[in-house]
């Protein structure tokens, strides 16, 4: 599952960034790849691709700043108990 998440995240980012030299821990915000619109696209991508709901408390930069962070965040959302 984890590898699959990583592959799908990289697949999405590759449509917008040069990912060949992007390490999993590279900060995509610091590298200037993320506009405010793309930040919203990332939220929409995570929700649509992995069928999760991004909540207010999830909107931490640390959840979105790198491939590794996105992978960790999605894994956490998928393993969290579904709220009633």
């Amino acid at each position: 599952m984890s590898t699959d998440i990583r592959t799908r995240v990289i697949g999405y980012l590759s449509r917008y960034f040069p990912v060949s030299d992007l390490a999993d821990t590279d900060d995509i915000f610091k590298r200037g790849f993320v506009s405010s619109m793309f930040a919203m696209q990332l939220v929409a991508f995570v929700e649509q691709e992995f069928a999760v709901v991004v909540e207010n408390e999830d909107l931490e930069l640390d959840n979105f700043r790198s491939v590794a962070a996105l992978e960790r965040f999605v894994r956490g959302k998928l393993s969290a108990p579904v709220a009633s």
Binding site: Y12, M37, M40, Q41, L42, A44, F45, E47, Q48
Partner: peptide, 12 residues
């Protein structure tokens, strides 16, 4: 309606 992330640039 498809919840496609590309809806954002499409609206622009």
């Amino acid at each position: 309606d498809r919840r496609d992330p590309a809806a954002l640039p499409a609206a622009s």
